[in-house]
């Protein structure tokens, strides 16, 4: 059951008194052939798991960096099919739990069951669907659960208590705590929402809360890690890959950034 790999990861991190570092990366950058090695480099530098982003032409919840990454990856030949093929390689070569990040439409197009088969077949642990509200999620959850993978659900500062209880009842492998309202992207300030989000969830449940959106610097990651079970950093890493001249440089930038972030999610010695 691949969902359990996430459960194990969070248990392990809790035992070590730290948060898990779960970077986001668009799959297929800088090219489909060179993509997997970036994930391997991040794993070696201290990433605990990944959000593997399927490039999408109209990513509503993403800011300019991940939009640009999606366009670049699609132009380089990546896409839903290629992305899911690479996902299997990422899981095997990094040995880390992976969660697929995508949008509703490509899943519907493929068929929910077929998509779930592909994700489970690749050995991934879960799926994040950026534009899927919990009220519409039942058929997805059913298909995923039947294959031992989980649907991650969002909780934001604006989420009502009623909705929160629906999210928790759906039993996600972890809750994606939206640290900053708005789309993904680099923010200059540290989020103040995480402590209250985590404590709101904790009042009802022990489900892991992973903080994401707007976390890019080690300081922001450190702040989030003191409350959350995991930290997602996306745009800041993707930006490096987009700026790099070649895959070697991209790898180097990622190793440096992940090294800093991996220290930040651990308590000071």
């Amino acid at each position: 059951m691949s969902r359990e790999r996430l459960t194990e990861l969070f248990a392990e991190c809790r035992a070590e008194g730290r948060a898990a570092l779960m970077p986001y990366m668009t799959v297929g950058l800088p090219s489909p052939e060179e993509s997997v090695q970036l994930f391997v480099a991040m794993a070696e530098a201290g990433a605990d798991g990944f959000e593997v982003g399927i490039p999408y032409a109209d990513p509503l919840m993403d800011g300019p960096t991940i939009q640009a990454a999606g366009e670049r990856a699609l132009a380089a030949g990546s896409g839903v099919e290629v992305g899911l093929d690479l996902l299997g390689q990422i899981v095997t070569q990094t040995g880390k739990p992976c969660v697929v990040m995508t949008y509703v439409n490509p899943i519907l197009r493929m068929g929910i069951e077929v998509f779930a088969d592909r994700v489970a077949g690749a050995g991934a642990s879960g799926v994040i669907v950026a534009d899927l509200p919990v009220d519409e999620a039942d058929v997805f959850i059913e298909a995923f659960e039947a294959r031992g993978i989980g649907l991650v659900l969002f909780v934001a500062p604006t989420t009502t208590e009623q909705r929160l209880s629906r999210v928790l009842k759906a039993d996600p492998p972890f809750v994606y705590g939206v640290a900053e309202l708005g789309v993904t992207g680099v923010r200059t300030t540290a989020s103040s929402h995480i402590p209250s989000l985590v404590s709101r969830v904790r009042r009802h449940s022990e489900v892991p809360v992973v903080a994401g959106v707007g976390i890019s610097t080690p300081d922001q990651a450190r702040a989030a890690a003191s409350d959350a079970d995991g930290v997602i950093v996306g745009s800041a890493l993707v930006r490096g890959v987009l700026l790099a001249n070649d895959v070697g440089e991209a790898e180097e930038l990622l190793r440096i950034a992940i090294g800093d972030l991996a220290r930040a999610v651990r308590p000071p010695r």
């Binding site: 999408y56 109209d58 509503l60 839903v80 949008y103 534009d131």
Partner: peptide
Amino acid sequence: SPGVIHGSMTYLLQDDQGQIL
């Protein structure tokens, strides 16, 4: 063909992998 765009389920222009055209 049917799909989801901008938060509604409706007919839309898409490719065989569900990318909006």
